[in-house]
Amino acid sequence: MADRLDAGDVRERLLAVCRALQAARDELSAADREIGDGDHGVTMARGFAAAEEALRAAGPGLPGAQFRAVGMALMSHCGGAAGIVFGTLFLSMAREIRGDAIEAGDLCRGLRAALEAVARRGGAKPGDKTMLDALAPAAEAACGEPRKDIRRLLAEIAAAAGRGAEATREMLPRTGKAKTLGERALGHPDPGALSLTRIFEAFAGVDAGPRKQGASAAGATTGDREAPR
């Protein structure tokens, strides 16, 4: 069956996300130094280290409960805006993932709910050069044609987020610490959008690999690749 992810599979993927965001610390901090205060990588690494610990401490459980454990850990341990934003992402998804496996419909509803909740909390809109610019296309990809192989769908979500992150290069910041930069922020991607891309890539099992700073490697080709499992 390729149309659902069972609880064990979800757990492995969430652990992979936790490891990937800890490994991305320097890449994300470098991106944040260009337009922020340079601590985004440290913030995310700290939050996902706590999330990994929470997942391991909780042991196997229903997919929704695992998403909730990650969300709570991020909310309490990232700090900054990132804790609320990424905590809200996982907690919103947790509420929409009710069964013993994740199906395409869960991803669609979960990401739509997350988009709405994050926008409401942060007061930002798509186009403001935030992680919403990666989340909105990801949610759209998740809600595309039904009956798709779920692993392929995950890869497409990651690719859509990557294209969204790339597009933030050309946007002017309207919120967060980058907002005072104005045009000086042009040419640099939003670090939160990059983080979201790394989350989706790791969850999809797409090997992000070593890369230069920037979102360009999360381009269209990943959509054709199968998850390695």
Binding site: R33, I35, D37, G38, V42, K177, A178, T180
Partner: peptide, 29 residues
């Protein structure tokens, strides 16, 4: 600098100052 990493929070040229710099090292105006 960020004490966790020891890295500078921004870079400023030898002979430069920045007016309006934020206290987190966000670039000023």
């Amino acid at each position: 600098s960020l004490p966790e990493t020891g890295e500078l929070t921004f870079e400023l040229g030898e002979n430069e100052i920045e007016i309006g710099m934020g206290v987190h090292g966000e670039r000023g105006v």
